[in-house]
Design a binder for these strands. Structure first.
Length: 229
DNA sequence: GCGACAG
DNA sequence: ATCTTGTCGC
């Protein structure tokens, strides 16, 4: 486990929107991304303890073909930014990056808990993290945020456009028969078709990708251990 | 103007 | 995100 502080100059107010507009120009959308089922796939997630002002992040690398754990790291720090819808990246990225930097191997595709292009300014967490690290990244969210969608067919694999008005910003993807879909959007250097294929490959049994399930469990454990020492 | 709103 | 018991089911 590594410990992190807040990077000097890290934005602290809503001029963050301008920062997002600036970085958005560096998002790469014309690459297909790593082929599903090959190489590494890394899940990242964050847990908070408001009482103790602690934040814990985890990065879990899986073998894309077998979904076996290849490596995992955690990082703990102080909460440096409040939760503001649309500015989630500023709250989560510092600690997530510390966890990613501590990995002993290449992360491959990064799967984020949240959105990429599906964002008020088309620059959500997955896009932001992708641009800062240069890594291919996608977002898989549990809720539709402010977007709309029609219910996909009941069968696993079915999708429906995730819409911002008439603009498609991602897809509602059914990962389990008859279960609420997840909301997938492109982050950086990955096509939407490939992002969907990756998520299906990561959900052989549960609604949420194995990457996020593992990262979620690990950052919660790291938070408990940090709070109790 | 007020509420809603990824995690 | 987090607060929280039992309960139904594989």
């Amino acid at each position: 486990m590594t410990t992190v502080g807040v990077p000097a100059g890290w934005p602290a107010t809503e001029e963050e929107a301008a920062e997002q507009d600036r970085l958005r120009g560096r998002v790469v959308l014309d690459e297909p991304g790593p082929p599903p089922g090959t190489g590494h796939v890394t899940g990242v997630d964050v847990a908070y303890d408001d009482e103790r002002d602690l934040v814990a992040a985890a990065a879990v690398v899986l073998d894309a073909a077998t979904l076996a754990v290849v490596a995992e790291t955690t990082a703990v720090g102080r909460i440096s930014f409040p939760y503001v819808p649309g500015l989630l990246a500023f709250r989560e990225i510092p600690t997530v990056r510390a966890a990613l930097d501590a990995l002993p191997c290449q992360p491959g595709l990064v799967v984020c808990d949240g959105y990429g292009l599906a964002h008020p300014r088309r620059f959500g967490l997955a896009s932001h993290l992708g641009v800062l690290t240069g890594l291919p990244a996608i977002g898989v969210a549990k809720n539709p945020f402010t977007f709309t969608y029609d219910e996909p067919d009941p069968a696993r694999g079915s999708t429906a456009p995730l819409l911002a008005g008439t603009e498609e910003v991602g897809r509602a993807l059914r990962t389990r028969d008859g279960v609420k879909p997840v909301f997938v959007s492109v982050g950086h250097r990955v096509s939407l078709a490939n992002a969907l294929a990756h998520v299906l490959a990561l959900t052989p049994r549960y609604r949420l990708p194995e990457t996020t399930r593992r990262a979620d469990a690990l950052c919660r454990r790291a938070l408990r251990e940090a709070a109790g020492s």
